[in-house]
Design a protein around this nucleic acid. Structure first.
Length: 562
RNA sequence: GCCUCCGUAGCUCAAUGGAUAGAGCAGCGCUCUUCUAAGGCGUUGAUAUGGGUUCGAUUCCUGUCGGAGGCGCCA
C-alpha cells in the first residue's frame, strides 16, 4: 500500500475526520505530509491523539501555524530504499486502473505525406500516456488511424504522375501547389482512387500506400513506439455511412441535401455538424462512427477509448463523442479526447502542403550529429557511439515535447528547443549513467563486494549515525533524495489520472537534481566508512532504478554509458 | 458575431484552493591532482488588469485588455 494512502487512513481512523487534504509540504523542514486544520484550538489535541496512535512509519507530528505536519521515520526511508531495489523495474506501478481495458489511438499519420516533426507530438505524448496508463494497471491496446483515402491522396498521385522522380512527400506538396489550376483532374483521380477503375492509378496508389506505411514502421521502430492495430479511413468510411443512414430520423436528420447531427438537441449540448455531404460521401465525422464500430469489434469489452489529437479538433470531438454515444449507448462516457498543442516553426505553422517542413528523420539526424560531436573523444566504438547518440538525440527530442502540459503549443526553435543541459532529456540520462558508473565501480572494488547495497539497517545511513543534534555536511542532500524516492508511485498515479506525462518529467528532474547535489557533496564510495557507503550506494541504486523506470514511462531509453 | 483554450522572471516552462510562487536557459561570481563538469554552489529576476467568493486565490466566478484555435458539406 502506498504510504500516502496509509497516512490518510491513519489520520481518518485516529481523528474521525472525513474531509482533509493530504499534501507534501513544499519545504522539507515542514515534514513529509501535511494537512490543514480548521480549528486552531483543537490542533494540539489532534497532535496528541495522532502522537499516541502513531504507526511505525511516522516519526513525529507537529503543529505549524494552520498546518499539521507529519514526519516519516528513518525506518520508513530505509525500507523504501530496499523496496525500490527489490522491486526493480516494477517499482512505481499502481492499481489505479486495475481491471480497465483501455484503447488509445494516436499518431493519425496520413500515408503519402511526410512524417514531420509536428507528428512527433501526438506520437510522443500518446505513447507516453499509454505507458503510464499501463503502469497504473490497465490492459492496453494501441491503435493508429490513417487517412489513406481523400483529396490529399489524389494530390500526391497527381504530383507523382506529373513528376515521377519526386518522393511521395514532395509529390504531395507539388499536387497541393497545383491543385487550384488542375482541380478537375485531381478530383477525377480522387474518384478513381475510390472506385478503383484505373489500372495506373491503382498501381500508383498501392505502391505509394505500401511505401508510406513501411516508412512509418521504420520511424516508429526508431521512436520505440508500437501499435497493436492500424485502422484506415478506407474501411471506416463505408461503415460509418451505413450506420449514419440507418439512423436518419432517429439520431441524424437530412438538411440542405446533407445528413447532419443536431448537437443542440442532445445532452450534453453541442452544435450541428455534417456527417454525410451532399454527394452522399461520409465526412470525417461519419468515419469516426465507423471507427468506433471497428474498435468495438476488435476489442468488444473495452472500458475506455482515448483519442489523442491536436487541439484544433476539440469542438469536433465534443460533438462526435455525443453522436457516438447516441448510436452506441454502451459507449457513453467511455470516450476521452486528449488534445495537445501544435508544434510551430518560428515563421508559422508547419504544413506538408506548402513543403514548409522538417521531417522527423531529419531532425533526429541533426540532433544526433551534435551528440556525436560531443562524445567524439570518448573511448567508445563507432557502433556504440552511434547507438548512444541516437538514444540521446531521441531522448532530448521527446523530452522537449513532454516537459510541458500537453495542451500548449510549442514554438520549435532548433537551437533552443533541443537542449542537452539543465532541464533536459540528456540531463536525466546523464544522471542515470553517472549513478550506474558509481555502482559499477563499487562492484569492481572487492572490498565492497559483501557490503554493497545492503540496507537492512537504515541506521547505517550517515544521517542517522550522527548524534541527536549534531549537524553533518551532506545530511540535507541525503534527506532530499530519500524524501523524493518513495513518491514516485504517487506521481505515476497522478500522471495516469490526469493523462499528464509532464508531472513525471518535473518529478524526475527534481530527483535528478537532488541526486546530483548529493553526488557533488558526498563521496559515495568511501572506504573509510564502509557502513555509510553501503547505504549511500543503495540510495544511488534506487535513484538509478527510478530514473530508468520513469524515463521508460516517457518512452525515453537510457544508455549505460555516455 | 458566437464558442473553447490561454496570459507566471528578459526567454522556455512548473505549481493538488494552502506555508517564503518552483525549474531551466540567458547574465554575473565560484567550482574538475576526488566516483563522468551533459555536473555542482551562489546571485539578479515574475502571477496581464479591475472587482468578487474564501480563514487563505496563480488556481474558482466576473468585467477589461492581449494571444491562439474552432464555428454545416476538409481531415
Amino acid at each position: 500500500m502506498q504510504i500516502k494512502v496509509k497516512i490518510e487512513e491513519w489520520v481518518k481512523k485516529t481523528l474521525g475526520e472525513e474531509s482533509f487534504q493530504l499534501v507534501h509540504p513544499k519545504d522539507l523542514k515542514n515534514g513529509d505530509f501535511a494537512f490543514f486544520s480548521h480549528s486552531p484550538k483543537m490542533k494540539n489535541d489532534l497532535v496528541q491523539k495522532l502522537e499516541a496512535n502513531k504507526i511505525p512509519e511516522v516519526e513525529k507530528v507537529e503543529v505549524a501555524g494552520p498546518f499539521v505536519n507529519v514526519y516519516l521515520s528513518k525506518e520508513f526511508f530505509g525500507d523504501s530504499v530496499s523496496k525500490i531495489i527489490e522491486e526493480g523495474e516494477n517499482f512505481g506501478k499502481t492499481d489505479l486502473f486495475e481491471g480497465e481495458k483501455v484503447f488509445i489511438e494516436h499518431t493519425q499519420q496520413n500515408p503519402f505525406k511526410e512524417f514531420h516533426i509536428g507528428h512527433l507530438m501526438p506520437n510522443t505524448i500518446g505513447d507516453s500516456v499509454a505507458r503510464i496508463i499501463k503502469a497504473n494497471g490497465a490492459e492496453m491496446r494501441i491503435a493508429s488511424y490513417h487517412g489513406d483515402v481523400g483529396l490529399h491522396v489524389a494530390k500526391a498521385i497527381w504530383g507523382k504522375m506529373e513528376k515521377p522522380e519526386l518522393s511521395w512527400g514532395d509529390a504531395y506538396a507539388h499536387g497541393a501547389e497545383g491543385f487550384e489550376k488542375n482541380k478537375e483532374e485531381i478530383v477525377e483521380i480522387n474518384k478513381k482512387v475510390y472506385n478503383r477503375t484505373d489500372e495506373k492509378i491503382n498501381s500508383l496508389y498501392d505502391q505509394g500506400r505500401k511505401e508510406s506505411l513501411e516508412n512509418f514502421e521504420k520511424i516508429y521502430e526508431k521512436l520505440d513506439s508500437h501499435f497493436d492495430f492500424h485502422f484506415f479511413e478506407s474501411e471506416t468510411g463505408e461503415l460509418g455511412k451505413r450506420i449514419v443512414k440507418e439512423n436518419i430520423g432517429k439520431i441524424f436528420e437530412e438538411s440542405e441535401g446533407a445528413v447532419v447531427f443536431r448537437g443542440e438537441n442532445f445532452e450534453p449540448k453541442t452544435h450541428t455538424r455534417v456527417f454525410l455531404n451532399k454527394e452522399d460521401l461520409p465526412t470525417y465525422e461519419a468515419k469516426e462512427i465507423g471507427l468506433a464500430k471497428i474498435k468495438k469489434e476488435k476489442w468488444p469489452d473495452y472500458t475506455k477509448s482515448i483519442t489523442v489529437t491536436a487541439n484544433e479538433q476539440d469542438s469536433f470531438f465534443k460533438v462526435v463523442e455525443v453522436a457516438i454515444g447516441e448510436v452506441f449507448p454502451e459507449l457513453k462516457g467511455k470516450l476521452k479526447h486528449l488534445s495537445h498543442g501544435m508544434l510551430k516553426l518560428p515563421d508559422g505553422k508547419m504544413s506538408s502542403r506548402t513543403g514548409n517542413i522538417i521531417t522527423a528523420e531529419n531532425l533526429i539526424d541533426q540532433v544526433k550529429e551534435r551528440v556525436l560531436d560531443k562524445i567524439k573523444d570518448r573511448e567508445f566504438s563507432d557502433k556504440e557511439k552511434n547507438q548512444i547518440s541516437e538514444i540521446i538525440a531521441i531522448g532530448a527530442i521527446k523530452y522537449s515535447i513532454l516537459r510541458q502540459a500537453a495542451g500548449g503549443d510549442i514554438v520549435f526553435d532548433f537551437e533552443k528547443s533541443i537542449s542537452f543541459e539543465g532541464d533536459s532529456g540528456p540531463y536525466l540520462q546523464y544522471t542515470y549513467v553517472r549513478a550506474k558508473s558509481v555502482l559499477g565501480k563499487a562492484q569492481d572494488l572487492t572490498s565492497f563486494e559483501s557490503e554493497t547495497l545492503r540496507v537492512e539497517d537504515p541506521n547505517s545511513s550517515p544521517r542517522f549515525m550522527r548524534g541527536e543534534k549534531e549537524e553533518r555536511p551532506g545530511d540535507f542532500e541525503i534527506q532530499e533524495v530519500e524524501k523524493m524516492l518513495y513518491r514516485f508511485s504517487e506521481i505515476v498515479k497522478r500522471a495516469g489520472k490526469e493523462y499528464a506525462p509532464h508531472y513525471l518529467v518535473t518529478y524526475l528532474v527534481e530527483l535528478a537534481s537532488g541526486f546530483n547535489s548529493f553526488y557533488a557533496r558526498e563521496k559515495i564510495i568511501d572506504e573509510a566508512n564502509r557502513e555509510a557507503s553501503a547505504y549511500k550506494l543503495a540510495l544511488t541504486q534506487a535513484v538509478a532504478q527510478i530514473l530508468k523506470n520513469g524515463l521508460h514511462l516517457l518512452g525515453i531509453k537510457v544508455p549505460e554509458r555516455m
